[in-house]
Design a protein around this nucleic acid. Structure first.
Length: 301
DNA sequence: GTACAGGCAGTAT
DNA sequence: ATACTGCCTGTA
């Protein structure tokens, strides 16, 4: 059995902020690289399999051959992951509904800054903030005769003033961006180390940073620090838990209401319960559920 | 004008 | 441990 892979649906999963479509090509920012793939079809439902790039081509600037394997996590044992998660009714349904949807691996620093911008705002706003930051603090790159900006380096963000950051429309998050850059530059946050240690330990380190709470830490862990067992709970996932998984929480007085903002302790209980339920690939389940919730709500991004 | 969306930090209880 | 509030920008 070959599991399908569709890069287009994957980058539209809502967690990939800096991608844009130009004709039959998609261009994305991956740190200081611009990555691109082109399809020779127009239908969005088309898929390709793992081994043969049927009509789809991958490029990047600067050129890095085979980047798609890393970015689209083609090194994961997707067959095993999806078969494990298929024990769950809802996830099983979404796997069939969205063939080719994959979890994506983001550039760690870009991912961390992106999600620090993601507090208390929506995806369109996050995209806007990150575009502004890239234009102001990134490097201009001409690729295919088109103008792009690399994601700002940690150094450039560290040197930026609060006012400069604020001018990018990030609002009160300017303070968090500054604090984060300083944390990284001073060696208090080591990405390589966070990749090596386990979920709970890495999360503990992230939570020390001003501006990073439970949800944002889980996003960073899942999307860039190789913690496939992370399960970010935002409002969309909370609605899903309330609607489809209430039975999991009815024991032990773990009931919750989706209309209420959850407390830190409630997040811990929800997180522990759902991660125990889905297991080591919880993050993949989250990806499918998130996509499903956004789609039935009619969200484009 | 007014309501609402959205995660975190800080303070009071 | 929980409740409440302020923080920003934008859309309906």
């Amino acid at each position: 059995m070959t599991i399908p892979f569709n890069p287009e649906i994957s980058i539209n999963s809502g967690q990939m902020f800096l991608w844009e479509q130009i004709g039959n090509s998609w261009y994305g920012t991956y740190g200081d690289h611009i990555i691109k793939f082109s399809t020779s079809w127009t239908s969005k439902s088309s898929c390709i399999n793992n081994n043969k790039n049927n009509g789809i081509q991958f490029y990047s600037y600067p050129e890095v051959k085979g980047w798609e394997r890393k970015v689209f996590r083609l090194d994961d044992d997707i067959e095993k992951i999806l078969s494990t998660l298929s024990n769950d009714t809802l996830v099983s349904k979404t796997i069939r509904k969205y063939p080719g949807l994959r979890l994506m691996r983001q550039e760690p620093y870009q991912c961390i800054f992106s999600f620090v911008c993601a507090s208390n705002t929506n995806i369109l706003m996050i995209r806007k903030m990150l575009k502004n930051l890239s234009k102001k603090f990134g490097c201009k790159v001409i690729f295919d005769g088109k103008e792009f900006y690399t994601f700002p380096s940690v150094n450039s963000l560290n040197k930026a003033t609060i006012n400069e950051l604020h001018s990018c429309g990030v609002g009160y998050r300017a303070k968090a961006i500054k604090a984060l850059a300083n944390h990284i530059i001073s060696g208090n946050l080591d990405v390589d180390y966070l990749v090596r240690i386990r979920y709970h330990d890495a999360k503990e380190e992230l939570l020390k940073v001003y501006g990073i709470g439970n949800k944002i830490a889980d996003c960073i862990l899942l999307f860039s620090l190789e913690k496939l067992d992370a399960f970010p709970i935002d409002v969309w996932i909370l609605r899903a838990l309330s609607r489809y998984y209430n039975w999991l929480f009815n024991e032990n007085e773990n009931k919750f209401k989706m209309t209420e903002r959850i407390t830190i302790n409630q997040y811990k209980v929800l997180s522990a319960t759902i991660r125990n339920y889905f297991g080591k690939y919880s993050g993949y389940a989250q990806q499918y559920i998130f996509y499903y919730m956004r789609e039935i709500a009619g969200k484009k991004w």
